[in-house]
Design a protein around this nucleic acid. Structure first.
Lengths: 207, 207
DNA sequence: CCACAATATTTCCAGTGTAAATATTGTACA
DNA sequence: TGTACAATATTTACACTGGAAATATTGTGG
């Protein structure tokens, strides 16, 4: 059995506890849900005393915030990726980002739910704020580039951006919370991804 | 000091524990958040041993489910109320219901968040299912009545309904999670309700 | 009036977050 | 090289939680 990554032999001083704990926590989150993400469970998974994580995350909220921060960085990358190849019209880029938004939520449901669960997050934590801001940048570029030629006042611009965001976010949340099961059941032969794309097509926000 | 409602003198056998516990729990929920809703806290608030609620709710998830059920009944009433007086066009009714949806979420934020937090709910509990179905009925009437004259296939009908729902739900969730603070801060002089109405106006879903 | 079901209490246990004191280790500096 | 110091980890302790199990009280139908 090979030694971990760094020189870790003595067992005291894990050597890479922070990142090890983060990935262990993320695994627990996706596998067993948020309620299973526990300081003690993470510590057990990494093979360390149950108070060791405190040095790196402070408390449970700190740990969850760091997990969410990692999620936001991946989220931002996924959104940016979705826009890049689409060299078509601005509206197509917005549409592609909406699709990527929902796809990410489906691919990492528990992580996504945590990311929008402020009650469990420390919204003053710098790393989390920075990661959120990165996602916001990704979103903004697509929304801005889809602005019409005709002049709009700032409120209308913000309202359209918020409407677009609300649509994709609400769709993701309803889906993850199982609220679309009835709808899907009433449409035999229609698979989920097809239906989600139809929703995004039908709802061309603003005009 | 007047006796409670029913004849409750002996202190053993509360007499109306279920409803008393429910309203106490709801008060705690709105005042201190979901994490404060605890079987023991509710029992303390009602002045009863900490295992007494078990007889009525089974476990914590059962209690939370009953609270959510009450919320869904109120939610359904609020939505139905919003549609009733509006005798105008079908689209106006849909618009009014969207406004009522967001208004309810703002008026009872923690309750609303619980209602869409399946992880904490027992979605097999009959009372909860019935209450959810009542809300769904309220929503459905408005959406159906706003359907165009021109024929649509079932998938498009469902997609439009889902898009409308997603928009208002996403708007409510983003707002409650504090995700619109930045946007609002960038629009000095615009108050929240005005902005929310603008979002709903801008996003006339489907056509 | 009494057996029984419903309701409430008491007692107990395992699991959790967190604080405080202690122990070990890496490292900068002499 | 060696040593004080900061960083990191452990041990111990405590208050809280959900829940199971045994017990006690009360309402009610027979």
């Amino acid at each position: 059995m090979v030694k971990r990554t760094a020189r870790a032999v003595s067992r005291y001083h894990h050597g890479d506890l922070k990142s090890a704990a983060l990935s262990a926590a993320e695994k627990i989150l996706e596998r067993d849900g948020l309620q299973a993400v526990t300081l003690r469970a993470v510590a057990r998974a990494v093979g360390v005393s149950h108070t060791a994580p405190k040095n790196h995350f402070g408390d449970l909220m700190g740990l969850l915030s760091e997990i969410a921060a990692v999620g936001y960085l991946r989220f931002a990358a996924a959104l940016a990726e979705a826009v890049n190849p689409t060299s078509g019209h601005a509206r197509d880029r917005l549409r592609a980002m909406g699709s990527a938004y929902v796809t990410f939520a489906r691919a990492h449901p528990n992580l996504f739910l945590l990311m929008f669960h402020s009650e469990r997050l420390d919204m003053k934590r710098p790393s989390l704020l920075a990661a959120i801001d990165e996602s916001r940048q990704s979103l903004r570029t697509a929304v801005i580039s889809s602005a019409d030629a005709r002049p709009m006042n700032p409120v209308e611009v913000a309202a359209r951006a918020t409407a677009s965001w609300s649509l994709v976010h609400g769709l993701a949340m309803l889906l993850l919370d199982g609220r679309l099961k009835n709808t899907m059941a009433s449409l035999p032969g229609v698979d989920v991804e097809t239906f989600l794309e139809t929703v995004l097509d039908v709802a061309r926000v603003g005009d």
